[in-house]
Design a protein around this nucleic acid. Structure first.
Lengths: 346, 346
DNA sequence: GGAGCCCGGTGACACGTGTCAACGGTCACG
DNA sequence: CGTGACCGTTGACACGTGTCACCGGGCTCC
């Protein structure tokens, strides 16, 4: 804490820029500063058309931009939204961040990214609390790194959580639920008498993967299949072969493997082929993503198509609703938008 | 402008949280508010050891966190850094953002992401200027979306640019220069009498790809090879085959294709194989990335290994230097860190 | 004709912080 | 003993904004 403060003050001596303020606008327009503030904040009907126009003119001429610091100080709330990003490689987080940032930008807010880092959940939560306390953001969007208890704590702190809370069993959100269920049901439908779930082996945590594995296990239980094995697959050919080999050694019958993403599915597929296993005879593989790479290789991957825009539509809708943008029709038909794209691996 | 302001005021009626201020700390510690401020800002030696301790104690007890709005207002500068992200899919932007955000976090700053969107360079620059004007950030980090003129304009506006300016020919930064040169030289070394450059066909712009294609052309000119063709490769098997077929039809001799990333390289490789071309006999393929997927498929991809941490190390170092963190030794040996990983496609 | 109301507009305050100038006290020095 | 320096501490100001309460004037309505 003390060290951090020290660093902050040992700043480069930035020259003080003048900066045009609302007082300048008022002076040029020949009105009081309060009038400028009122007009700029939508109280247009209370003033004469001519005054409004003069103020608008002055704003444009001076290229006036209100100071976020001044606004935040008096409102007790900034025009920032904190984006809590989990430490995972599972989905294409870049696209998600980009879509959300664009939405926020449309309604006049900016996104501050906060990445989940190592150091245990306590450390991360305290960093986040510090951020919320100092920035007083207009809201928080969680992409999966926070527990319901964490979210409650943040909201208690005065920071509304804009992302929808997961409502399904085990705290799995609709998107991950639909993906995992589609994977499992497809494999069962294709006749595999036993399933497995393949995680990405990575230094990062994988909350989505855990959720999905749970859902796959549930589907197996419903269908009377044995508890699915869980394997961790590194994205290196030799190591992936080892992992797949370990799984197949103890199995006498075909196994359908649901993978946490398409890269893992590619790794599993080519590992199985290198091990002289028949695909999809001995080993079935289904990925998730469906974007590109799995459909380029031979054999073509079976995968659950997964449109990022769909998966974040509920978040985006919540943002617009809370922060006041145009209402877009919600896309809630997850079972339809997450559909199976059959390739040559099942 | 007016609509934006209107939206901003139609906010949910957030209850005013009290919030512990430095005055509370001062009261509890039995000192003046100025004393608290001085101590929290590193003027420790000017006060008695006992006073410093009492203030520290009070800060901890009340969990006091200074208000960013108050700081920014009086300092004329916030503890935010704007991250300008180009509209590209070429590199793994997520990792870059994450690394930079972590560095900023270490020195007490937060990252505000600003994505390059459609609407022409003028629109993007004006959005960015607005952001800089209202947020008064401590700095700006450009990941490649801004021209030198844009950067100058922003700096003139009072926002220091933390990312290093490209210094090479054609405005190509060191990382992209080393990558493209390694690709071209490898293909020439492997005996291809003619080269080509394969872009990713995407709705997004691809500034890095253009830079690299230019470098490849330069290397060809140096070596006395003809001007390399440039093709745009969609990430769908059938379309990729069309693109590769068009390229090969007019060529009577082997062609070495440098690809803008590993996914494109996979697409080109499997497209060539589907067209009954010999790889690497008729067609050589080298990607860039070397992370995972190219090394999982059969045939294994030749690629230029590319460590994200290395590529952003110069940016990170610039951040630490400008914002005052611990100095890390720079990693400037690009020729070493961007090396060719030979697979079965060259 | 006076009370009340709507209209267009404004003065003053509060938000929380960093820092300049100044304070009283003690101590060394001439 | 007078004077200046230094130490530890503090009061006061400024930063730019949103908004409450208020004001004068013209109008309507009994």
């Amino acid at each position: 804490m003390s060290m951090e403060s020290e660093r902050l003050t040992v700043l480069p001596p930035t020259p003080r820029r003048p900066g045009v303020t609302s007082a300048d606008v008022a002076r040029l327009a020949g009105v009081s500063r309060s009038t400028v503030s009122h007009i700029l904040n939508g109280q247009v009907t209370r003033f004469s058309e001519e005054t409004v126009e003069r103020v608008r003119e002055a704003v444009a001429q001076l290229a006036y931009v209100p100071s976020a610091a001044g606004r935040s100080l008096v409102l007790g709330r900034s025009d920032l939204v904190v984006l809590a990003v989990p430490n995972t490689t599972l989905t294409n987080v870049q696209d998600i961040i980009e879509a959300i940032a664009a939405d926020l930008d449309d309604v006049g807010y900016s996104a501050v990214v906060h990445f989940d880092r190592g150091g245990g959940p306590a450390g991360n939560l305290s960093r986040l609390r510090h951020l919320v306390e100092t920035l007083r953001p207009a809201g928080l969007v969680d992409l999966g790194s926070l527990s319901p208890a964490d979210l409650d704590a943040l909201e208690e702190q005065g920071c509304p959580v804009l992302s929808p809370r997961p409502r399904n069993v085990h705290g799995v959100d609709e998107g991950n639920f639909a993906i995992a269920r589609a994977q499992a049901e497809h494999l069962i439908e294709r006749g595999f008498p036993e399933l497995a779930y393949a995680y990405l082996d990575d230094r990062r945590d994988d909350p989505f993967g855990r959720m999905r594995a749970t859902v796959v296990a549930d589907v197996c239980a419903e269908a009377g299949l044995p508890e699915p094995a869980r394997i961790s697959v590194p994205l290196r050919a030799a190591d992936a072969q080892t992992a797949v080999c370990d799984l197949l050694r103890t199995r006498g019958r075909p196994v359908g493997i649901a993978c946490s993403n398409d890269e893992v599915a590619v790794a599993v597929t080519f590992a199985a082929l290198a091990l002289r296993a028949a695909v999809p005879g001995d080993v079935g593989v289904v990925g998730v993503g469906g974007g590109s790479v799995g459909q380029l290789v031979e054999p073509r991957l079976s995968t659950v198509t997964f449109d990022v825009r769909t998966s974040v539509s509920s978040i985006r809708q919540a943002i617009r609703q809370a922060l006041g943008g145009s209402q877009e029709p919600a896309v809630n038909d997850f079972d339809d938008t997450f559909s199976v794209l059959q390739g040559a691996t099942t």
